[in-house]
Design a protein around this nucleic acid. Structure first.
Length: 599
RNA sequence: GGCCCGGUAGUUCAAUGGAUAGAAUAGGAGUUUCCUAAACUCUAGAUACAAGUUCGAUUCUUGUCCGGGCUACCA
């Protein structure tokens, strides 16, 4: 149990003893870290109890404080400052805490339990390569999955590939028209980029045909429907749905190219999936659910035969579920897929990492399932995140302002190389080690940059200046970690040392503020990890890791480890930095960020 | 029009209803005979506006203003 939780329990216990008549409502006990300008380590806020217990802050503070000193072994003293009870934690608490946990590479994790959750993320279309906006989704989904795992949940990471539809047909048509049989091999291109290029070519040709028709006097909206290339694409989609062998073959070939490209990108991004769903398998699902809904009277049929649900009670509109011709729409297949997921894995919960422009869609999806009485409805959670925008606004493929994901990775790694060389830190590395280091630094910076912000907030990305390797970055944390490793190497102390070595440590001298603060921050890690899981928020891990690295740097500057004042101090500080490194590694690893031992 | 989300230093981000609103970066001033200066120390700078609830509001409620998203028989 974390110290803050222990203090909360102790306070609860004290209040029960001191005021047996009064019931203290849950949640009224607030325990905070003491502000640096006051003496003490943790603070209990007294205000909420004053009215309830009809007492004064000084009186209550003294009662509580004395009770703690008498009944627990946690504190050495307390101060009362205007309604706040500031508690000073016994130094030996920190040393024994470190001795108990420094050797545990899983510090902060929770035991496994049988809560099954699926995290669906990435879910790309197969008509174009991944871009910068997708990266936020991918890192977020991966990190949330890992964070939930560390909290003991059974996680299935899933990718639902949108592999069919008119957009894919557009690429196929353009390829047929213009490619002359070109393949990724013949052009020496990544397959996803090749297919994306023909998607762009389609749009160019389409635009040209429309403006041609307009100049011949056709109305623009009519021209948009009548352009031959668009009609070809629609015809191709019909053939696909009719299982035309030739169309299917081309579709399989081109999708195959895209998957090869995606797999390279995913591997480089360091993310993985336990389950792949393909829309070509799932797009017909959902119709049976609709039929059942009709039988139950939850849905209704209009005169033309189309099927609807009325959500006006919930402040929403009526929503179409089946067209008049009986074909399904987007949300119909989502209903089916939602149920499929729960059946496949007996899930308790199903997370969808999807951009916030689909908030309404996801709300409707959940609501419909609820109205249909599907048990999976309650487990559905939309992990909504804000768009990544450029200073000039949204990225638009039509305007060519999309930042390609592969390019972005290359640029970051190049930046890492440049900065490392500039700082003259390449000595003592082989070329192979250097390349690995640049990748670690570049990818780390990219991931941290996208994860450090609260997911639900939209973020602005300025390709020219946004990404820095100084300040609130992964590099800062990586550097602190490398420094620790360097010290440990020189001290002949392995990263995961023998736990018997430090067992005899007893403090005879008071801890310096920088030492104590570092231990205090480390001790909070389990509660940070828990909160990050509850809120599905990896930015908590980033903020925390940065704070920890920052405190380490201050400590490092002020106190020497190798030349500590005496052996006792040296032992304590070694424990401190071993655990600092271990927690940093753990926290960043959950975000997919690696920390080098040397940089 | 309706619904949803956001508005905090010049900029990018923090702050379970708690003390004098924290960082980073850009700006100013310093630190290297000593474990990695990709670091450290000091300095200056912000809650859009107005009411309300509260001992206490960046946080909760309402209204106004600004920005974004959604509101398809597209996926």
């Amino acid at each position: 149990m974390t110290l803050a939780a222990q203090i909360r329990l102790a306070a609860e216990d004290a209040l029960k003893h001191l005021f047996p008549e009064t019931e203290i409502p849950a949640g009224t006990i607030t325990v905070n870290q003491t502000k640096p300008e006051f003496k003490g380590d943790y603070t209990i806020v007294l205000f909420p109890f004053l009215k309830l217990l009809r007492t004064k802050p000084d009186v209550l503070g003294n009662q509580l404080g004395n009770y703690f000193l008498e009944k627990t072994d946690l504190f050495t003293e307390f101060q009362i400052v205007s309604g706040f009870l500031n508690l000073t934690v016994r130094d030996n608490y920190w040393s024994s805490f470190l001795q108990n946990h420094f050797n545990d590479p899983h510090f902060g994790e929770k035991p496994k339990h049988d809560h099954r959750v699926m995290v669906e993320y990435s879910s790309p279309n197969t008509n174009k390569p991944l871009h910068f906006g997708h990266l936020r989704n991918i890192f977020l989904g991966y990190a949330v999955g890992e964070i939930l795992k560390a909290n003991g949940q059974q996680v299935v990471k899933a990718n639902l590939v949108n592999d069919r539809g008119i957009h894919i047909c557009k690429s196929m048509i353009a390829w047929q028209r213009y490619a002359n049989g070109a393949t990724p091999e013949s052009l020496n291109t990544k397959g996803d980029h090749l297919v994306g290029d023909y998607y762009v070519k389609f749009n160019d040709a389409y635009k040209a045909e429309v403006s041609g028709l307009v100049s011949e006097g056709m109305d623009e909206t009519v021209a948009e429907k009548e352009a031959p290339i668009m009609k070809e694409a629609q015809e191709m989609l019909r053939k696909w749905e009719a299982n035309d062998p030739e169309t299917k073959k081309l579709w399989e070939t081109m999708n195959g190219w895209v998957y090869e490209g995606f797999h390279i990108s995913y591997q480089r991004l360091g993310v993985d999936f336990d389950k792949w769903y393909y829309e070509s398998d799932t797009y017909l699902l959902g119709k049976t659910i609709v039929e059942e809904g009709l039988r139950k009277g939850v849905l209704f049929k209009k005169e033309d035969g189309s099927v609807w649900i009325d959500l006006t009670d919930e402040g929403l509109d009526q929503k179409l579920l089946l067209r008049a011709d009986g074909t399904s729409v987007y949300i119909t297949q989502d209903l089916g897929t939602a149920k499929l997921k729960f059946n496949d894995y007996k899930l308790n919960q199903s997370l969808y990492v999807i951009g916030d422009e689909q908030n309404y869609h996801m709300q409707v999806l959940k609501l419909i399932l609820k109205k249909l009485g599907e048990p999976c409805a309650d487990g559905i959670y939309h992990l909504s995140y804000g768009m990544v925008e450029l200073p000039t606004g949204r990225m638009k493929s039509r305007e060519g302002t999309v930042v390609d994901a592969d390019d972005m990775m290359d640029e970051m790694i190049a930046l890492a190389k440049e900065q490392t060389e500039q700082a003259g830190k390449t000595e003592g590395f082989t070329q192979e080690e250097l390349d690995k280091l640049y990748e670690t630094i570049g990818m780390g910076a990219l991931k941290f940059y996208l994860l450090r912000v609260d997911p639900k907030k939209k973020m602005i990305f300025d390709p020219k200046e946004s990404i820095d390797l100084h300040g609130f970055t992964a590099t800062f944390i990586q550097y602190a970690h490398a420094r620790i490793c360097s010290i440990l190497r020189k001290e002949g102390c392995p990263l995961k040392p023998d736990s018997t070595k430090f067992q005899s440590l007893v403090l005879s001298q008071p801890l310096a503020p920088a030492e104590k603060m570092l231990a205090l921050i480390i001790e909070q890690y389990p509660s940070i990890l828990e909160t990050a899981a509850q809120e599905y928020n990896p930015s908590a891990m980033c903020n925390y890791s940065f704070q920890l690295a920052q405190q380490f740097n201050s400590f490092y500057d002020e106190h020497s480890i190798s030349k500590a004042e005496n052996e006792e101090k040296k032992q304590f500080r070694l424990l401190l930095i071993i655990m600092t490194a271990s927690v940093l590694r753990h926290a960043m690893n959950l975000c997919g960020i690696r920390l080098p031992e040397k940089m």
